[in-house]
Amino acid sequence: MAIAYPFSAIVGQDEMKTALLIAAVDQDVGGVLVFGDRGTGKSTAIRALAALMPNIPVVTGCPYHCDPGSPTPGLCAQCENGGKDFKTREQPMPVVDLPLGATEDRVIGTLDLEKALRLGEKAFEPGLLAQAHRGFLYIDEVNLLEDHIVDALLDVAASGENVVEREGLSIRHPARFVLVGSGNPEEGELRPQLLDRFGLSVDVRTPTELDMRVQIVKLRDEFERDREAFVKKWKRKDSAVRRKVEKARAQLNDIDLAPDVLERAAALCMTLGTDGLRGELTLVRAARALASLEGKAEVGLKQLRQVAPSVLRHRLRRDPLDESGSTTRIERALEEVLDPA
């Protein structure tokens, strides 16, 4: 495995980093979509995130790494039937790559070929969706993903369960994961159904400040020349981020909402005319995760304002004749709702 670039050594791109950390703190926020210019560190940031993931307790020997603390319907068949006394162990939260060109059978799982050939046994070999359960599923160049793979993903991402009915197998197993996608909008648009599965979406732009660009080149160069030494040098900062995420996860449920946050979130969504309730829910969830990351005891309007662009950007109804970008529209609505004159 190649050594990943440290998360804390990524220069700038604060919105992207925050969105990824929010998803790491509260996985129910939904996924993160990172869209933007080439060479802006999209993949770098997401791969770096893997190194920051906290450990999670899992049932020993369970191929789907079930959560021992989960209520019964959330477990796989094997753990469900096995009674309540599991052996447990800790493992890092999985971050699974779904590479382009992955075949359907590897994504959703298929007949175990080796067992079938050698023993004549019908056994299920879990796919990438099973591996990603309770963790992250990362798709680079998400807009180049083939349609039938997208279809398979959509259903599982919505239901949190992978149902395999193929090749004489009939299997269902839990598959709840955070979908993380990156891509370049010039390569094509995403299907609206897939877009809808992402909780947060981030627009990354090339930094235009000279100092920042110099800094990017310097750090990246240092990394390329001696990866191990570089990672060692940034280890302390990365651990600090990791501890922050762990702490934020632990205290997430103790964070209250300031009195008018809910109302303002609803007003914001109404002003922008977003469909459904999901926008509001995600707004509040993301704001809470951010407050937790910042060590606050309460979600305030500041957090709401900060997460609003990421949460709402891809939920606006598309108006092809409106020249102003969605970010500008959100900014306008934020001013209207949060700072009424």
């Binding site: 210019d37 080439r38 060479g39 090339t206 000279l210 660009r213 110099v214 080149v217 310097k218």
Partner: peptide, 23 residues
Amino acid sequence: DESTRQICTLCLVLGIDSPRASL
């Protein structure tokens, strides 16, 4: 640093967006 800075400046001046070019 000075050379790195010169490369980055040149990129900006020539309208090259991607940091990959400087690297």
